[in-house]
Design a protein around this nucleic acid. Structure first.
Lengths: 250, 250
DNA sequence: AACTAGTTCAAACGTTCGTTTAAATACTAG
DNA sequence: CTAGTATTTAAACGAACGTTTGAACTAGTT
């Protein structure tokens, strides 16, 4: 029977610490020694429990992404059931995809903002094994949402939708990674998007909500923007946000 | 009397190779030994000419960013002179900021897409010295453009503009980095945004133009999106891009 | 008590890292 | 040509890396 007793303790403690340290210093910038020291376990524990450093990173993500993927697919299922065959609204799709993620930032038991920041940062890491890991892990979800967007925007060329999905992922992952130049330059006007060490759960939760509130309208505006006039690159669109309709040329 | 003639040859060759390798494998993932081997110079050459690996990365960026910063400031100067005191249009500002950058992707003598990808990737690197380097390097330009956007969108709260500038930088840097999950999942439908080794100059140039054409409308749409209804997170905005005016509540 | 399987531990493994050294070579000025 | 500076070279440095080892410890079973 034998639930190995401390096994779970050690494993979880390693995962928690690795999640935070990978978030703060990146994969290559975090050594096994600082991980095991911070987790107060032996140096060999990572290799014993996970096999390798690469496998540890994958385990860190698997612990969270399984739930996230299920949640995202289920959110889409619910929406499509409600719609009864009709195409969904773009805002519903974005809310299901990005809202589900951003709500993880408010839930400390799902990793909170620590995991969100790690995810955002890791999505841009160049290491090959990371890219293929994410590709496999995300394939089904991305595909479902891509198709939902195709149905929601039947008049927009599919290539254009894929591009914009691309841009939206970038805006999101950069925003949640929260380690950028702008914040340094502007002096943290956004309300401490970084906060490497404070890790106040209440503050993080508030940050996640604020981020969601700002990001979703931006993404929706970008997704629904008029298509570029492919022939003439110069613009003729209305300018002020307060001012007019989007050009209905899409 | 064979190839190694003078210091300029060595320095430039190191910079060229480092630019490409840092782009492909990241800063921490690229060793001095592979750099010097690929550049066909002695291992000690980097430390002799640049002082350290960190200083090399900074030199790689300084070689390009000086020109880019000047170009961006000048573009804004021209626009403001033409406007004669009147606020600029958001599309003009975005064109000056992002268009200037994306045009570097078409210009091989300015680093082309290699430099753009490196820039996008490096903007999300966690190393401290990189962040402070960029903060110093970008401070003046970001500040000028921030103020221009404040003037262009007087009815939008400044904090909101900063957030959206943030999101736009993210969408751009992710898009030009071009190493993401979506492309793997969708099977390069976007037309080979990555191309680690092909490095076809003509293809890169075409890619830069295509990217610009897709990205700019997205950014403009996001920037000009209606503000979120801060009280009620649920939406009441028109959905299809082809369909209606933006809510003029901003 | 002895056996077994799971886990922890200190120590060491072989590599690779960025950097430094000091001699050798190339170049330039007087 | 010579003196002197600038650059290149091969070799080595110590530190840090991820991983492996084999013994010690823990607990449940017989």
């Amino acid at each position: 029977m034998s639930e190995p007793k401390n096994n779970h303790d050690t494993r979880e403690r390693i995962l928690d610490v690795a999640e935070r340290l990978f978030m703060e210093h990146g994969y290559e910038g975090t050594s096994m020694r600082v991980i095991t020291t911070a987790a107060e376990v032996n140096l060999a524990a990572v290799n014993y429990h996970f096999g390798s450093k690469e496998a540890l990173l994958c385990a860190v993500f698997r612990r969270r992404l399984g739930w996230l993927n299920r949640e995202r697919l289920q959110a889409l299922d619910v929406l499509e059931a409600q719609a009864g065959g009709a195409p969904l609204k773009p805002s519903q799709i974005l809310e299901a995809f990005f809202g589900t993620l951003l709500r993880m930032g408010e839930d400390e038991s799902r990793g909170g903002m620590t995991f969100l920041r790690l995810l955002g940062r890791t999505l841009t890491e160049p290491a090959e094994f990371i890219r293929t890991f994410f590709a496999n892990e995300y394939a089904e979800v991305i595909d479902r949402y891509k198709l939902a967007l195709f149905r929601a925007l039947p008049d927009v060329p599919k290539a254009e939708i894929v591009w914009r999905l691309h841009f939206m992922l970038g805006a999101m992952s950069y925003a949640i990674a929260g380690t950028d130049v702008l914040r340094v330059v502007t002096g943290c006007e956004l309300g401490d998007l970084a906060g490497e060490q404070n890790a106040d759960a209440a503050g993080d939760s508030a940050l996640a909500r604020r981020l969601s509130q700002r990001l979703m309208p931006f993404l929706l505006g970008g997704l629904r923007a008029p298509l570029s006039n492919l022939a003439a690159p110069s613009a003729a669109a209305p300018e002020s946000p307060g001012e007019g309709g989007q050009k209905p040329e899409v």
